[in-house]
Write a protein that binds this DNA or RNA. Structure first.
Lengths: 231, 231
DNA sequence: CGTGTGATTGACGCCTGTCAACGTCTGTGG
DNA sequence: CCACAGACGTTGACAGGCGTCAATCACACG
């Protein structure tokens, strides 16, 4: 447990779903929520768990994934500063359809289900914003589905790298601001680790990227776009 | 244009998202909505269109799909009696991310955006139900994503047939109550038409199904479940 | 220094997409 | 009523993308 963060003063650059709540609601929220540190590798919740609240990401990166045949992970999405996780299961009143694992040390604020339900009942604007968020996520999920179903592994990897760029950005040296293992990259696009390794080497030869361990430096995004069949 | 259907008396067996609205709201809805007949093959809206309302399916079947490279369709989902379509784009304030095409003659009720927004603003319960629906759909989309990314074409086809069964049911003779072309089946699971044809023949030889033109009769659902790696 | 995790490379072969040819059926127009 | 076009279904041949297996290397950590 770290010092309690105050929603009212929450100064993270990316705003959260709670940003438009009146101050009085934020204060009530502060009284009930719990903020915690999570180390890389920690599991926030497992697929099949029944959640009793949602988590708001104050810092760090979480991966949400489903476990398929023989334990192979399929990464569904990432959550970073300002995102919330667990809301889908809670709202649809189903058990969690993904597991959530920390891939970069994180601080998460836990909001109990009762408080969320209270907000939903008494703040129509809040509910509407959540609805909008869910619809956006649904659109992304649908797009991703079509990509995976129709494109080759090479195209998908190029596109995944571009997506990671637009989600997490580049640092001053042009490196992706998220570092994944080869296996995690493979689990985003649904392929084998070895395939990712071979294709990354090809992208390097094609001068699209440079590689330093897990860090990927973007050199030629247009080349990647062409490879991914995007225009 | 067919005779106006009345939400208040809407007697379709599957209830719609509007079911819990107070009668007074249903009456207002009736004054503004427009009901129409659509023939097989009609396009309701195209990917990229900006929608100015949503459609409620009174009867028939609609397919929602994205168009990929070289015009290849990827079917995202089907909508049948009681479902609504177009709400995702409208709520997220984006252009339509799919096209909607009639695959079985349909009657659709069109609800203008202004009326929907009015309902969202004044009926918190309605908004919440919509939120729940979006979250459920998101869960399905995520599951489907993992299936497609990780399973072989054979497994996916078996699973798709089972999904169609649970969505549309069987008639008295055990036939799926939805008839798709081989190409449409292929576009659900992201494969080539020829592959679907070959695999359907195999499933027939394995005594999982029987085939009469486009109609598929389920014989051994457990066999299909095993083939799909489901338990 | 041993252990474990992750990265890499090579060999191998099957699944599956593509291309081409042909059959079947339906609706349309002469 | 027949010819024809067009959509859909089927089958075969073929190649190559990509998954799998196995061996080796690199690196961190206790």
């Amino acid at each position: 447990m770290i010092r309690q963060l105050k929603c009212k003063n929450c100064d993270i650059s990316v705003q959260t779903i709670f940003k438009n709540l009146p101050d009085v609601e934020k204060e009530k929220l502060d009284l009930e929520k719990a903020c915690n540190n999570y180390k890389r590798g920690s599991i926030i919740y497992h697929e099949g768990n029944r959640l009793n609240g949602i988590f708001c990401v104050n810092s760090g990166i979480i991966k949400l994934y489903k476990t398929g045949i023989e334990g192979k992970e399929q990464i569904i999405r990432f959550a970073k500063q300002g995102d919330i996780i667990g809301y889908r299961s809670l709202l649809s009143e189903e058990v969690a359809c993904t597991s959530a694992k920390v891939i970069e040390d994180s601080v998460l604020c836990f909001v109990p289900a009762e408080r969320l339900n209270y907000l939903l009942k008494n703040n129509p604007d809040f509910t509407f914003e959540l609805l909008q968020m869910a619809c956006k996520e649904l659109g992304e999920s649908n797009s991703f589905l079509a990509e995976i179903a129709q494109k080759s592994v090479r195209e998908r990897l190029a596109e995944a790298i571009l997506l990671l760029m637009s989600n997490f950005g580049l640092d001053n040296d042009g490196f992706l601001q998220i570092n994944l293992t080869r296996e995690e990259l493979a689990n985003i696009i649904g392929t084998a680790t070895e395939s990712v390794i071979r294709l990354l080497s090809e992208f390097k030869e094609d001068k699209f990227i440079e590689i330093q361990g897990r860090r990927i430096k973007l050199i030629d995004t247009n080349g990647l776009k062409k490879t991914a069949n995007l225009f």
